[in-house]
Amino acid sequence: MATDRPTVPELVQAVREFLETEVQPGLQGSVAFHTRVAVNVLKIVERELADGPALAAEEQARLVALLGHDGDLDTLAHELIEAIRAGRMDVATPGLKEHLRSTVMAKLAIDNPRYESYRRALHDSDA
């Protein structure tokens, strides 16, 4: 199954291209708007299929380092918010803001890499 073609990313891409080239040009009003949203959703899916697993693994590894023990991503993420809610961690906690920034940058790489604050942050980290 792993090598079956078309792959899931290829199928999603095909639907997205169909919407962009054959459906969108003839549309107006709210259907045109919602189709643009649908195309953007498929772009998010394509990016997450490509990069999501690696980014999640990086987030999990950072959480292991920050919290000092192993665990799956979901459990560790809940443990982190519990630590913040209980006041055991805050903006001054070493490594916390760096971890959150890396996590948010990874999310935006998938959700909306055109967001201006993201582009600025990428540019600043390159400089």
Binding site: H34, N40, V41, R101, V104, L108, N112, Y118
Partner: peptide, 24 residues
């Protein structure tokens, strides 16, 4: 049910980055 409402949840990360830029 709406594709627009489904999609807007992926804008949460935009506000997360802006909050990190504001919180010092």
């Amino acid at each position: 049910r709406s594709v627009e409402k489904a999609a807007i949840g992926r804008r949460v990360s935009e506000t997360e980055l802006d909050l990190l830029n504001l919180l010092t």
